[in-house]
């Protein structure tokens, strides 16, 4: 049972610290005591399994799944990439869930009181399962920037929330994808909570190869999850 290698630790040099005081929700919610190291038993090396049949045929197309009267407003984009482990090996057949505001920067959520229009043709949620090489692809609308209450005149940069599982509960990841060249990034305390050397890992790249002529620009966003701590000898 314990012959399987465990997973590499969370790289705390790449993840943001829990306490990031510029992001004002962290001081009351960051754990106050050090985390306790937990050996990786079977409970940690296993995790929920989702197959291709978990998602509907339109779940990857956020411009379609909630459309009622027509196309949603905004700039149609393609967001695609590969999920790999730290050795660059694709992570196949794992669930990705995404959510985002609409083109006007408004979330379809009761708590979002931003004075910007909702879009009757856009919910902003989607999901897909990676293919055999770990690749995924969504079609959506470029999300708008929106104000938030963190500090005076605070605005979130354009972003899409991502939730991923990976092969075990230890490879779970929730993150946010940003867009290249967004001048709000340098002002955003959530983005800047990430150690500087890793921030650009959260910024997608405009990809002309992923773009479709006369239809939509493509953005590439690759995601790296924790991998196996040791590789088998034959590798």
């Amino acid at each position: 049972m314990s012959s399987q290698a465990g997973y590499t630790p969370r790289d705390w040099g790449s993840h943001p610290p829990y306490l990031s005081p510029e992001y004002k929700s962290t001081p009351l919610r960051a754990p106050g005591k050090p985390l306790v190291v937990l050996p990786q038993s079977l409970s940690e090396r296993t995790g929920p399994v989702y197959g291709q049949n978990a998602v509907g045929p339109l779940d990857h197309d956020l411009t379609k799944i909630a459309a009622t009267t027509g196309e949603p407003n905004g700039e149609r984009i393609i967001v695609a990439g590969q999920v790999t482990d730290e050795a660059g090996r694709g992570v196949p057949h794992i669930l990705l869930e995404v959510w985002q505001p609409n083109a006007a920067g408004r979330y379809q959520h009761a708590d979002d009181q931003h004075d910007a229009p909702l879009d009757p043709n856009f919910l902003g949620a989607g999901r897909c399962v990676t293919d055999a090489e770990g690749r995924y692809r969504f079609i959506t609308i470029k999300p708008g920037a929106y104000p938030w209450g963190n500090h005076y005149n605070a605005w979130r940069p354009n972003h899409i929330h991502f939730s991923l599982f990976g092969p075990s509960i230890l490879t779970r990841l929730v993150t946010q994808m940003y867009f290249p060249g967004d001048p709000l990034l340098e002002l955003d305390p959530i983005f800047n909570g990430v150690p500087e050397a890793s921030r650009q890992l959260l910024v997608s790249k405009l990809s002309i190869e992923l773009s479709e002529p006369e239809w939509a620009l493509g953005y590439e966003f690759n995601i790296v999850l924790r991998g196996r701590a040791a590789t088998p000898l034959e590798d």
Binding site: Y23, L123, A125, S163, I223, V224
Partner: peptide, 21 residues
């Protein structure tokens, strides 16, 4: 040569329609 892990970010306040619709 190892790739760096993609940094975590907060789930934020608006996860409901994405994760628990």
């Amino acid at each position: 040569d190892k790739l760096r892990q993609t940094p975590s970010q907060t789930v934020g306040p608006y996860f409901a329609y994405g994760l628990t619709p």
